[in-house]
């Protein structure tokens, strides 16, 4: 058990980056804290910040080392963490985005496997996946790929032994207690349970993604007709 007073912990990452660890394990409060600290740092340091990379329990702060230095940045981070705690930022919730999903065996080839492994019906898998509200913990792996957590332990499933060479755009998938929607076609080892017709990464749109780290996502089951009507496509998976 790690003592919570060890956090936040600021560690050097590179010549121009510090990484801040907020807790040993992620949860909604940690995620909200990261979002809040991120906003304060950006406001305080402006253009001296080159990028901020939030993830499950950490925030990587990349700065312009020719304009500022790690002493200044570390101090801003410490103050930001302190402000975030005092102002109850942790209670503020990110916006809620609802994504429609066509859950079926033709769109979700791993639905049946999960149902069989857990000894529940396919309908029960769908019900449990669409009943929860998920936190956007991290975005990465590929442009627009968001790690959402946590799924009901009853439908948690390990990654496939052999990843698929082609996972279609819009595939809604589960890996352990995480779930995600593949924003574009790519290789992937997550269990596919459905397809989402909403584009999740489109550079011609502003914003390019419907949500950010710290926001919340829920899934609404739709039928095949609605999926196709919303622009969804069916591929051989």
């Amino acid at each position: 058990m790690t003592n919570q007073t060890d956090y936040p912990k600021i560690v050097a990452a590179s010549e121009n980056a510090l990484i801040v660890y907020f807790a040993s394990t992620p949860d909604k409060a940690v995620s909200a804290q990261i979002t809040a600290v991120q906003h304060i740092i950006s406001k305080e340091l402006g253009c001296d910040i080159l990028d901020l990379v939030p993830s499950f329990n950490s925030l990587l702060v990349i700065y312009n080392a020719l304009n500022t230095d790690h002493f200044v940045v570390a101090r801003v981070i410490e103050n930001a963490c302190c402000t975030a705690r005092q102002t109850q930022f942790q209670q503020t919730q990110g916006k809620l985005v609802t994504l429609p999903v066509y859950y079926a065996e033709e769109s979700g080839p791993d639905l049946l496997t999960i149902a069989n492994d857990k000894n529940i019906s396919v309908d029960e898998v769908i019900k449990r996946h669409s009943a929860k509200e998920y936190q956007v913990y991290s975005i990465g792996f590929a442009p627009g790929f968001a790690y959402l957590g946590e799924v009901d332990p009853m439908i948690a499933a390990p990654r496939l032994q052999t990843p698929r060479k082609k996972v279609p755009k819009g595939a809604v998938a589960i890996a352990d207690q995480q779930t995600a929607v593949y924003p574009s076609q790519s290789p992937g080892g997550w269990n596919i349970i459905g397809l989402c017709p909403t584009p999740l990464f489109d550079l011609s749109q502003t914003p390019a993604m419907p949500f950010n780290v710290g926001d919340r996502v829920c899934f609404k089951p739709i039928d095949k007709a609605e999926y196709l009507a919303q622009g969804g496509e069916l591929h051989d998976i």
Binding site: A13, S14, E15, A17, I19, V53, S55, L60, I62, G140
Partner: peptide, 10 residues
Amino acid sequence: MLSEGIALGA
């Protein structure tokens, strides 16, 4: 390990 931000040169 939980995934975290990767700096240049890591």
